[in-house]
């Protein structure tokens, strides 16, 4: 079975985020890059499905040329092919991104059995690219999936619903968006890394579109700016901690 996985390059932020002076982006001068945890799980799921059912997995991203790094990361986990849609600029909202991805899939002439996405991207959190791609390609789409099985040409997908778990069964080809927790992604092996370093990356280029959701600026939410009370060092702090627990009313009677 042939599986496509879509991932998006995002910075790894630590305990504090700083913005660039023009307030358009996160200041990434001192940061590394990664993909959303949901997408990392999507890559793992694709690799496992191909291990179990044969076929091949392709990882695709739309982003700057340096997003090649995230494609190679995915290949070092076992993805077989990589496609980079080189696209810069701020115009890439959910609609434009989905249109570009759907076109790249159509133009390549590959018939994928399964298209995997993250439930939402780490940075934009639009909750929509996978669903929009499904409509453009006229495929069924299940979102937020935490357990997936492929049998008899069908995807059996489980997710959390308001009252418990919901189970969906859809025929392939289908779009599935996944959430972290569906699996535990592997660490890339050394041979995997070496292979990924040399593997080819297919490239397409697109110009920035006119966005329907147009960013004006990013802002940091107002912090609570708390004054922390140090209760003590080591076991010496325990006595006052017990007092605090009693005050709050969570100490057992």
């Amino acid at each position: 079975m042939d599986v496509l996985v879509c991932v998006k390059r995002v910075p790894v932020t630590g305990g504090r985020i700083s913005l660039t002076d023009d307030e358009q982006d996160i200041d990434t001068r001192y940061l590394g890059f990664t993909v959303s945890p949901h997408e990392e799980c999507a890559v793992e799921e694709a690799v496992r499905l191909v291990e179990a059912h044969g076929g091949s997995s392709t990882v695709l991203t739309l982003g700057p040329a340096v997003a090649e790094e995230q494609l190679r990361d995915a290949m070092s986990m076992g993805a077989n092919r990589a496609v980079l849609i080189e696209a810069e600029g701020p115009g890439w909202d959910g609609g434009a991104t989905a249109a570009a991805i759907a076109r790249a899939i159509g133009d390549a002439g590959v018939e994928y059995d399964l298209l995997l996405f993250g439930n939402e991207s780490a940075d934009a959190g639009g909750y929509q690219v996978g669903i929009r791609v499904a409509h453009l390609l006229d495929l069924p789409c299940v979102t937020g999936v935490k357990h997936l099985e492929i049998r008899d040409g069908k995807a059996v997908a489980r997710r959390e619903g308001p009252g418990g778990f919901e189970i969906y069964e859809v025929p392939l080809p289908a779009v599935i968006t996944v959430k972290e927790g569906i699996n535990l992604p592997r660490y890339p092996s050394i041979p995997g890394r070496l292979r990924a370093k040399k593997a080819p990356v297919e490239r397409l280029h697109l110009d920035a579109p006119q966005p329907g959701l147009e960013k004006i600026r990013l802002r940091l939410p107002q912090g609570r700016d708390k004054q922390v009370e140090i209760l003590g060092d080591g076991a010496a702090g325990v006595e006052r901690a017990v007092e605090v627990l009693r005050q709050i009313g969570v100490m057992p009677p």
Binding site: T13, I17, I26, D123, K215, L220, P221
Partner: peptide
């Protein structure tokens, strides 16, 4: 955005 770590003003 970012699960609530950042806000975005947008049109």
């Amino acid at each position: 955005r970012w699960g609530g770590s950042l806000l975005e003003d947008a049109r």
